[in-house]
Structures are given as C-alpha cells and as structure tokens.
Design a binder for these strands. Sequence first.
DNA 1: ACGTGCATATTGTATATACAACTTTTCCCT
DNA 2: AGGGAAAAGTTGTATATACAATATGCACGT
Lengths: 245, 245
Amino acid sequence: MPSPRPAKLYEQVKAYLREGIASGIWKVGEKIPSEFELMERLGASRMTVHRALRELSAEGVLLRLQGAGSFVQAPAPRSPLLEIHDIAEDIARRGHAHRAQVLALEARPAPADIAAEFALRPRARLFYSEILHFEDEIPVQLEQRYVSPGFAPDYLAQDFTRQTPNRYLQTIAPPSEVEHVIHATLADASLQALLRLGPQDACLCLLRRTWTPAGPATRSLLTHPGSRYSLGSRYKLADFHARPG
Amino acid sequence: MPSPRPAKLYEQVKAYLREGIASGIWKVGEKIPSEFELMERLGASRMTVHRALRELSAEGVLLRLQGAGSFVQAPAPRSPLLEIHDIAEDIARRGHAHRAQVLALEARPAPADIAAEFALRPRARLFYSEILHFEDEIPVQLEQRYVSPGFAPDYLAQDFTRQTPNRYLQTIAPPSEVEHVIHATLADASLQALLRLGPQDACLCLLRRTWTPAGPATRSLLTHPGSRYSLGSRYKLADFHARPG
DNA sequence: ACGTGCATATTGTATATACAACTTTTCCCT
DNA sequence: AGGGAAAAGTTGTATATACAATATGCACGT
C-alpha cells in the first residue's frame, strides 16, 4: 500500500482556496486573505502562494488587483464545447458520473421529411438510436439520432452504454461539415416522463446534422431540460500578436 | 516624449518563441532550445524563461516533457459555434423588415452579481439598454444589455432605432473574447406581454458576454420566443486533427 | 551483441530576496 | 473640516539557488 505522496504544494493552496470558495467562506466579490496571510496560514512561501493565486486568476476563479487584493470572481458558466466533445466527456469533466440508457437501436423507415434530408426516397430505412443520458442519475439529455447506413454500416452492433454514438461515429470518420440549430419548446407528455420534468418546464433542443464529402451522415436531436442544463462556448477571437518592434 | 517602457521580460520571451514558431524556425513537433539555452541567448534568468515556457504550455503552444524538452504543438483548430451576428442583418437577409423599440437607455447601478462580472464594486454604474426587436412587426427578440462605460463612453448618446447596439459596439472595438450560454425557460408575465406569448410558451435565452484585453466589455441577454425563433450555425471543418506520433 | 547502470541533460517544484507598481489608509498641516 | 503627503498594505516581476523527477545517451561488463 503506497503511502500517499504529498501533492504539489501549489496545488494544495489552490485546493484550499477552491474549497473555501465552494463552502461559502469567501463569497463572490469578497476579498480573500492576502499572499502574506496565506503564506503564514498554510506554511508555504510567498512565491508558491503567488503561483497558486496567479493560476486561479488565469482560470477565472479570482480577480487580482495590484495594490488592492484578490477577489472571488463569479463562476464562469460551464461550457460544454458543442462542436467537439460528447456529453459523456462533458459530464466526466465536471467530475460527475455518466450513464446511458439505450431506449431504441434499430433500422426504421425514415419519416418523409428526414428521408428528404438524407436524399433518400420516402420510407427508405435509416439507422435510428434513442438514448437517455444521466448525470449522477439525473436525466440531462435525450438523444434521438438518425444515421446513414452507408456511412456507418456497423452502427446497430455497437454497445452505446459503453461508448456514445458521438464518439463511435468520430472513429468512423470525422464530418466535413456540421450544422447546429437550437430552439426551445415546452416538454410534451413523453418528454416530461423521460426527463422528469413538470408540465411547465421548458426544453432546450439542439439539432445537429453532419455531412461527409460523400453526403449526409447523421442527424441528431438532443433535448435537454432547460432548467437544469445550458449550452455554451467561450473562445478567443484574436490570437494575433502583431507587435511592432 | 516618454521612452517606450520595456515590456515584461517573460512576455518578451513568449513573443520571441511565438515569432520563431510563426516564422518557421521551429516547426510542429520539433524541439525548441532548452531553458538553459534560452536563458543565455536572451539574457533572462531560468525562472523567467521557465515561466514563459510554462504559460505557452498552458496555452497549448508547446508540449513540455520533463527530462526530454519542449516541443511545438499543432495549433488547436478553432471553429466558433456562433459567430457574432446582428439581428437586423439576419432579418434583412430573410427579406423581412426590422424595427427596434428602445425601452430603456440609461446608466443604472448594477446588481451585485453583474457588478462582480464586470469586476466593479457593488452599486457601481453601468450603461444599460433594453431594446425590443420586431421582424415584420412581430416581436422576435428582447435585448437586455449592460455595457462597461469605460469601453463605450458615448453609448447613451446613440440612436439604437437606427443602428443596433451590436453593430455600434463593433465599430468601437471588436472583442477579443466571447462567451455564449444558451438556456430555455418559460416566459414570465412581463415577457409574455412584450413578446406576445401565451402562458405555455417557452423562451430561448442567449447570454452573450464579451471581453477586450482591457477587461469585460458587454453582457447581453437576448430572449427569443422559442416557438418563433431558433439559433443556428453551419460551418465546414477544414482542419483535421493530426496527432504527433 | 546486448543489456545494465551511470552520467548528463532537461524540466518541475519550492524557497528567499529584492524591488517595482499600485491601492488604501493614516495622519498631519492648513 | 479638507486636502494632501506620507505610510502601510498588496500584488507584479525578476533573480539566484537547491533539489526532485524524468528522459536520453554512453560506457562498460558479461
């Protein structure tokens, strides 16, 4: 049994501050102890405390003002990266447990409008999967997905409780084009039951369609409980560093 | 005439390396000079060089392997989920008529949570505008926006029936960073009246925050009738993800 | 020929010190 | 009381040093 190697000191300082903020000792907008105070309290050097505070500042947890002090920042909303990661990774990144329940996995005749999207004749068969995703046993997404059989011939043989369709399809071939459309609706009866919503709860619906050079690949409708989930992204626009000498 | 103040040394080291990578002196996957080598070449201490390299590593520019060296990373592909689009342009693109009704335009004390987002003291004043946007005389967006006075000092003097705040702010300075968060709610009484919604209608809310290098610039909450409006984007994924062997 | 082990190179962490830059508070003079 | 200067407090940057952790290559012995 290995003795627990002491974690990096600056990580300990960061953890100490994170916990204090999470537990409400220091609230948003309030000032946390100074570097000197933390230095004496935690028994680390000022440079170590300084590094911890600088990293927390870079992460958006703290706002540091030279000459004034360090203040707790409003938590940045968690931003699941819409275009790349799948929900299992998002949940894992938040440190929660993900579970997938496969409600349907079959080839079914496509509705006329969807068949048209895939450039197929009406009633042509498409692969269809319906999966309910849980975050710590709370339902957070209903995933209804049509997949072109020509794109993923082995789709129906997968175990999607172990690997999300998103991730499996990435291994087949990454899409060359992606479309996102987001809208909001009120939950109908079946959605209320699946997502454990009340009759007055709104849903956030994300329609994601992907294409490969060969044609339409997938069409997935991701429905989230509007009150418990949000979608977001944050990115830098200008990475140019044109500095005149 | 003030002599140009020398930039921070670790920033100079970072710039030196960025330029070398950009100009092709060091290519993706190649090893850059060691901390010791850079230390002698640039005349900075090892700790200063070390800080520059550590930050470049955190930014994804370099990959550092203890005992081996520092290697140039492949640039991360950036594909914005939602480009900054202007609702007046969207409506015009659909061939419809846009009209804006200014419901409020004033300096007001910011609520505590919003003041914290802007790194201001509670009760500090922010510019605030509330504008209702119509598409062919049907309300499609309620825009509630806080603007940092330091970022746009003349904000309150604008006529936002002629030019949307979004467009005006773009002329001031484009943001360096953008965050989008989307969620869905049920319309409350005031929203029902403004957007002409029924008590059972869902709303699609887009919170958009922007930053400049100087700090937080704007915070706008855009509320759409979920039944009449959707957000979307479609883009090509030009870059494929190449991993170093 | 082959692997073992050691020396070396490189990055990671921690500390002490010094001074600079900036903010807030205190206090003194008018 | 008011204004302003001084002092104190806090964060930012830069350096020197020491040791730890990890990877690589070389020399040596079998």
